[in-house]
């Protein structure tokens, strides 16, 4: 469940307000968005991908918002990085290897 908006990292671009498929955030003039409807969160992590300053943290538990602020601050951004988005796009180690998926299934079946 969406847990934290780090005000100090947020540029108030409101991208997360737009892209969140659950319409969880409310924009505020000149400020970071508020998590207005946490119970509507889908725990889909998509907002994090679109936040270029890693100012959001989604806890993987669907029923829990409480999270250590330090852990959130340390981990947020890992999804965007490992997905190779934005400034990570040219890092060869982070290249999209999704095409391996069918090979993994085949190996699991022993073929």
């Amino acid at each position: 469940m969406i847990s934290v908006v780090f005000d100090e990292r947020c540029t108030a671009c409101n991208e997360c307000v737009a892209v969140c498929p659950g319409d969880v955030f409310d924009a505020r003039a000149g400020q970071s968005p508020v998590i207005a409807r946490p119970d509507d969160c889908h725990t889909c992590f998509m907002c994090e991908l679109y936040c270029r300053t890693d100012a959001l943290y989604v806890a993987p538990q669907t029923d829990e918002r409480s999270v250590s602020h330090d852990q959130a601050a340390e981990l947020s951004g890992d999804f965007r990085r490992e997905s190779g988005w934005d400034e990570w796009g040219d890092d060869p180690r982070l290249r999209n290897q999704h095409w391996r998926l069918e090979d993994v299934f085949r190996r699991a079946r022993g073929v």
């Binding site: 992590f45 806890a59 993987p60 538990q61 852990q71 981990l75 890992d78 999804f79 490992e82 997905s83 190779g84 180690r93 982070l94 290249r95 999209n96 290897q97 999704h98 391996r100 998926l101 993994v104």
Partner: peptide, 17 residues
């Protein structure tokens, strides 16, 4: 080793738990 670049959201979920 490849999992983070195959299915990043799977790895993120485990790490955060």
């Amino acid at each position: 080793r490849q999992l983070p670049q195959i299915s990043p959201n799977v790895v993120v979920t485990f790490r955060r738990m």
